[in-house]
Amino acid sequence: MWCLLCVVICVPGCISTDGSGPDHLYSALAKTLCGGPVGRHMPTEKKKQQDRYPDKSPNKSLELLRECEEALRTRPARLHRAFSYQNLSGDLHQKTIRVMQWNILAQALGEGLDGFVRCPLEALNWSERKYLILEEILTYQPDILCLQEVDHYFDTFQPILARLGYQSTFCPKPCSPCLHLANNNGPDGCALFFRRERFELMGFTHLQLAATHLHTNQVAIVCTLRCRETRQMLCVAVTHLKARSGWEMLRSAQGLDLLSKLKTIVQETRRIGVDEKVSRMGVPLLVCGDFNAEPSEDVYRQFATSSLGLDSAYKQLSCDGETEPPYTTWKIRPSGESCNTLDYIWYSRQHLSVDAVLQFPTAEQIGPDRLPSYNYPSDHLSLVCDFSFCNSPE
């Protein structure tokens, strides 16, 4: 049974001093415990909106971003990406919610299993790659951050992002492939972070996805949040479905299982509610993940036609508003080059509007050796969207 709980997730981090942990990264955070967002890139029309909500304490994020840049000074310039603004006529009194979805590439898999034949092992060195990952997060400053293939949650991401104002939870895969590799840092899994300043946690659950009533190795996290400003409820899920071709039916079954559980959670949240407004307006839903499925697969169609009323945010980049981007991951393995669209941010079109979408770099920007590389830490590109509530309870 899903219940609304007032839960504080605060798992102590394991800080190492051998150069593999986040000890150096803490130097920019040593004097303070709470953080605020760095200013985001936006046109003049949207700058007015940001000015209504000035950053309370951006220094720690800025200092850590500069520390990342210093650690990466010998690496080539990072990929330049711009936002495509979809809604410039929205309510400037309402602050948008920035959501980032990203498969960050588990360190153990990148070094020991994935076989990126055009990526030098030196480019995957964790002592620098962690700075590339953090730099990407700090650059876009999401309010909600959904990650997959996280195998450095306790010693890096949780403690560092907690000091920047994020609350989080982590759900490892029961039989993570990382555990079978040398020098692993434990199991990989999904992690969900959100800004404590923006949201209050009302409840959460960790799911082990099932197929034909049998548990699989894939997981999901579902959190119910309440916006501190508007008091609007928001349900957020992050997942990572089964990889590789030949497993389409399993992904389809996992998707149906997740959709069924999301329906139950949303209905229960709406039924219990915290006030009459939640019951009347419904609960918006965001589902982020690496689905390992092209738009032609059944699991994509299941989400697109679900009774939950979901739509894919990144279709906003297409001319007709109906086409997904040509790729969200691009890599070269011994079996050849693969360029696929596998990652999505699904949203409740009845309750949320897409205000901005981060564009993908071109093939020329990515380069002939594809991903990962010296200037990008993962084989998957991050997805970043700005959302706003269509209707405010106020």
Rank of each mutant, 00 (worst) to 15 (best):
L4T: 06
G13I: 00
G13Y: 01
P22D: 10
D23N: 08
T32Q: 13
R40A: 07
H41Y: 12
K46D: 02
Q49C: 14
D51W: 09
D55S: 15
D55F: 04
D55W: 02
P58L: 01
E63S: 15
E63W: 13
E69G: 10
Q86L: 09
N87M: 09
I97G: 04
V99G: 00
M100P: 02
Q101S: 15
G110C: 02
G112V: 06
L113S: 14
D114G: 05
V117I: 15
R118K: 15
P120G: 14
L121C: 11
E122I: 09
R129G: 00
L132V: 05
E135S: 08
Q148K: 11
F157Q: 00
Q158S: 14
G165N: 00
Q167H: 11
T169W: 01
P177W: 06
P177S: 13
H180T: 14
H180R: 14
A182S: 10
A191R: 00
H215N: 08
T216D: 11
S245H: 12
E248P: 11
R251Q: 11
S252N: 10
S260W: 11
I265H: 00
Q267A: 13
E268D: 13
R271F: 13
G273Y: 01
D275A: 08
E276T: 14
V278D: 03
S279Y: 07
V283S: 00
V283Y: 02
C288A: 14
F291L: 09
N292G: 06
P295L: 03
S296E: 15
D298C: 14
L310H: 05
A313M: 08
Y314R: 01
Q316S: 09
Y327E: 04
T328I: 07
W330I: 07
E337I: 14
R349S: 12
Q350W: 07
L352A: 05
T362Y: 10
I366S: 07
I366N: 10
P368Q: 08
P372S: 06
Y374W: 14
S378Y: 01
H380N: 01
S382N: 11
C385F: 05
C390Y: 04
N391H: 12
